[in-house]
């Protein structure tokens, strides 16, 4: 057995003199040349593994991957969850020279007050986009998703993500998140069940693809994804609905038991460099949380309608992490929707 262990250890971790960095990241979310730039600047060998949802990352870390990676990129509410579970390490601003580059409005956030576990990566919004060739009418309401006009019925893709669908549904009905009010939850449940008959599919990864290919004429989508769909030739318009939209921020966190803590801090510091943060934004089409990125942004990204909501729109809301008892009610609604 001992020999077996030695062999595995040997196969698993070849040593690098310059040190290494293990990143656990969303797929398709960091440009390859930026990683190479970091490697060239620091001599650190970077390994990136990917996941496809916040929850998938959490499950893998909980099942035994914590201690394998240095940094991960959870969304706002997930930072809070991981911090509460003791899965994050903390740092001091002195350890990170570029810490002051964090945009002021993203410095003191509820999920990480004063930023001691995480740094902003990208932020954006979730609402929906409509193919204007199919439907030219008013798209300023979430009714497009939940009570769609005849032209869009049966041609809608919704995100296969409990959080986003239930929050957008709650916004549409004007009820708060994490409510325990029975009448409100019942109304949400009934509204969703009724809306489902007009939906063609559930899917998150495919949200852009279905709009580009024409499989769906409208769909819930992240703003950067919608911008990419437009760039790929789909005549889609992203809506900032009057009922509100979902806001989110992905953050680079320092994981507990990080095998290369120093390199992780170098990497986070690197990502707070405006030029590098802008490179991510140019790639992902969202918005950076770093000051001073504007000179480095592509014009198409800087001026995109998806990233520049018109004045006077209803502000977005962040997802709240409900307590266990309340969350169970929302879980039941979601199961009910997909049963």
């Amino acid at each position: 057995m001992k020999k077996l262990l030695l062999t595995t250890a040997f196969l698993a971790s070849p040593a690098f003199a310059e040190g290494e960095l293990k990143v656990y990241h969303w797929f398709e979310y960091i440009p390859e040349d930026l990683v190479q730039k970091f490697e060239a600047e620091t001599g650190i060998d970077v390994t990136i593994d990917t996941y496809d949802s916040n929850e998938a990352m959490l499950a893998a870390l909980k099942a035994g991957k914590l201690g394998q990676y240095d940094v991960a990129v959870p969304a706002d509410f997930m930072v809070g969850i991981m911090a509460a579970d003791g899965m994050l390490d903390s740092y001091t601003p002195e350890e990170m020279p570029n810490h002051a580059n964090i945009a002021p409005q993203w410095m003191d956030v509820p999920f990480d007050p004063a930023r001691t576990h995480s740094i902003p990566y990208q932020w954006g919004s979730t609402s929906f986009a409509v193919n204007r060739d199919v439907y030219a009418g008013d798209i300023s309401s979430l009714a497009i998703m939940f009570d769609p006009p005849a032209e869009l019925q049966g041609k809608i893709n919704v995100l296969d993500s409990q959080n986003e669908v239930l929050i957008l549904g709650s916004l549409y009905l004007g009820i708060p998140q994490c409510t325990q009010d029975r009448a409100q939850l019942k109304a949400l449940n009934d509204m969703l069940l009724n809306a489902k008959q007009h939906w063609a599919s559930f899917g998150s990864d495919i949200a852009k693809d279905v709009l580009v290919s024409g499989d769906a004429a409208a769909g819930m989508i992240y703003n950067g994804f919608s911008a990419k769909a437009r760039a790929e030739g789909a005549n889609v318009e992203y809506s900032y609905p009057k009922e509100g939209h979902v806001l989110w921020m992905d953050n680079v966190v320092l994981l507990k038991d990080a095998p290369n803590r120093d390199n992780a801090l170098k990497f986070m510091n690197f990502l707070l460099e405006p030029e590098n943060a802008a490179a991510v934004t140019n790639y992902a089409a969202y918005t950076s949380g770093v000051t001073g990125v504007e000179p480095f942004l592509d014009d198409a990204i800087k001026n995109s309608p998806e990233n520049n909501p018109p004045a006077g729109i209803t502000p977005g809301v962040f997802a709240q992490a409900c307590d266990q008892e309340t969350q169970q009610l929302y879980d039941a609604i979601w199961t009910n929707l997909k049963k």
Partner: peptide, 22 residues
């Protein structure tokens, strides 16, 4: 994808992300 170590890729794990989005 679960039992592989960090950075140890097989073809499916290496391409999965770029296939899922089209």
């Amino acid at each position: 994808n679960f039992v592989k170590g960090a950075g140890m890729e097989t073809l499916p794990t290496a391409i999965f992300g770029s296939v899922k989005q089209g």
